[in-house]
Design a binder for these strands. Sequence first.
DNA 1: AATTAAACGAGACGGTACGTCTCGTCTTATT
DNA 2: AATAAGACGAGACGTACCGTCTCGTTTAATT
Lengths: 204, 204, 204, 204
Amino acid sequence: MSLPRSGPVRSEAARRAILDAAVALFVERGYDHLTIEGIARLAGVGKQTIYRWWPSKGDVIAEAILDGRLLGGQRALPDTGDARADLARWLTDLFALRASPNGEALLRSLVAAAAGSAETGRRLRAEILAAPLMGRLSTAMGGATGPRLESAADALVGGVILRALSREQFGADDMVALVDAVVGPAHADGEAPGRLTTGIPSTQ
Amino acid sequence: MSLPRSGPVRSEAARRAILDAAVALFVERGYDHLTIEGIARLAGVGKQTIYRWWPSKGDVIAEAILDGRLLGGQRALPDTGDARADLARWLTDLFALRASPNGEALLRSLVAAAAGSAETGRRLRAEILAAPLMGRLSTAMGGATGPRLESAADALVGGVILRALSREQFGADDMVALVDAVVGPAHADGEAPGRLTTGIPSTQ
Amino acid sequence: MSLPRSGPVRSEAARRAILDAAVALFVERGYDHLTIEGIARLAGVGKQTIYRWWPSKGDVIAEAILDGRLLGGQRALPDTGDARADLARWLTDLFALRASPNGEALLRSLVAAAAGSAETGRRLRAEILAAPLMGRLSTAMGGATGPRLESAADALVGGVILRALSREQFGADDMVALVDAVVGPAHADGEAPGRLTTGIPSTQ
Amino acid sequence: MSLPRSGPVRSEAARRAILDAAVALFVERGYDHLTIEGIARLAGVGKQTIYRWWPSKGDVIAEAILDGRLLGGQRALPDTGDARADLARWLTDLFALRASPNGEALLRSLVAAAAGSAETGRRLRAEILAAPLMGRLSTAMGGATGPRLESAADALVGGVILRALSREQFGADDMVALVDAVVGPAHADGEAPGRLTTGIPSTQ
DNA sequence: AATTAAACGAGACGGTACGTCTCGTCTTATT
DNA sequence: AATAAGACGAGACGTACCGTCTCGTTTAATT
């Protein structure tokens, strides 16, 4: 039951141009050098067209994330059969944002965007902590679910973010240590990895 | 062995006024509304006096952190004998930045500052991950040290940061779950807390 | 043949406010205490609105002169029938810029503006050497025109300016002497004023 | 009756270095780009050493003029026997400040300095209107002296300055016209130059 | 020789203004 | 009515100088 309305409808072309431009500038210069004027200029769009549909640059970025224009590839997770190694590998990729040049700076920029915009913060976590990660992590933890699983996921991703913020080197070994810290170390014998030895077999 | 130099010496009064003003404005308005002009105005100082000694507003904040003007109280950790509970309590405090009004927003602001300034990032992690936390965490983990301990600390603090960024509610229960995820769950019996109950020592 | 352009048109209100403010500050404080920020402040206008339309404060003043906001009254010339006396009187007025308080300082300020801005220099001379002066001077010189007339006008006005620059006193008598020097002295008898009495018309 | 004073005496080396630096920067960049800091830097001198002895940059320039570092060559006047031609030639030189590159800009800069500093104004006129010009001009005017002569000199030099301010072209012909306007035209016959040929003595 | 005091180089300080950039709002002509 | 364009008031950016004020060193005249 919406009011019938005449006149042109929202331009999808403009919307796309804006998001494309925003992503391009974000990747190139980072969140805090990102400006509405710059986006409008690059997109060939009037500033008002941006302000009409998004309240802030943070929300433009949030929508770009939702559209998969940022972080899109981050959802895929390798599957080598070794869940722990897969997780470590995926975290390494996250840290370097898929090995793109300046990927670590880009991750920090995403964090800055998240700090500045509630919507971006929500979406950033939702996208990173998406199904593949949670599934594999649950497996590695012997089927954990609920708050315990969520906390573990937060701990993993948060650990990576904290290292990125501190500009510390963070190599593959550290990622393994991080996974160990959260999932528990692998066992010397052939037993399934897991924190508990209650006899309930890890289904990994 | 520095070159002897004549001329007036750096004004400690100006330095203090600048850091005080920066902290006040940071707490009040957040990192991205923090401006050099605002700091200079409030501190009663010329802008050049700020630019003379700090390359950016991020470095001013970094020095404020180092001076203990921000996060100062964060180093203390309760000691009730129950290391796990103490850690959970301390994380709750961190999340809400010692229960100050807008404490969570302040934490996000610190993250934004860390994202924007390398020095702030380094110092933020260094100050948060200071001795008390590491000591207690090591205890709770059964004496872990080295990369394993650092990773666990990153995981704990990073988990809190990620939640803060995502604007999710994060109550005391969630903190306990986070500690459990990283340290391992408490035991029903009186045994020493630890991840493994098999008697097999952590080989890490 | 200009490109068709959409968008708002230049604000005449802003233009007027800027010129008014510039003139007020110029008269009050002189050219070298005139600042763009001061003009913007007094005019209630953003700085960019000034920079958008004028490249420098000199050009703002140049436009004010062209608008008749400065020197406006300078074009009128008394007409008592005695062209020589009229010229001397007018030069006296010019020297003291119509007897305004600080008029002489104002004249020096105009000279400073002319020295600093090409456009102001052009307009200053054009406005001062306007029709009334040239007409009367031509009469006083017995109908001179062309370079000879222009040179005489430059000599008269330049003489006044040089005295103003040197801060020498320059009274009515000196003005008469200046007119005499350029136009030639009055004759004792009732003959027409002029330099040559040979009856040979000046062909210059 | 000065108080006995111990301590070092004013450094002549510093004084010279300052004036040299001031002249160099003035010639290079013009009066309004001339700064005390720039002079101090180039002279290898503390700012206070300048402020100790001169109240403003205008007074530094005024002293440089007095020292003959600026306008030094301007006092010489050619002597070809034809006073009118000599004057025209000298005015041409003045206009182009002895044909130095940017000489005309330099003249305008001197005018700006004179407009801004009383002492510079006084000295500028005094130096330009020095003995050689006055002598030759008096000759060309048939022995005029006193206010009449001064007025004529002002008219000549002022005419040149006004043209320089207006950025008009001003060639040798115009200089001749200016001399004619002030001194009177040359005669076809060999008679002595002068304004009146009637034998009626100038009553001035 | 020791003392005293000013001149000197260097440069930190609180300020003002520069010219540029971006903000978010508003106005126009076009589609 | 939505758009591209862009003018507007506002104000922060980082830089350049202002004129004043320490500093520590150097240099003379006076003790």
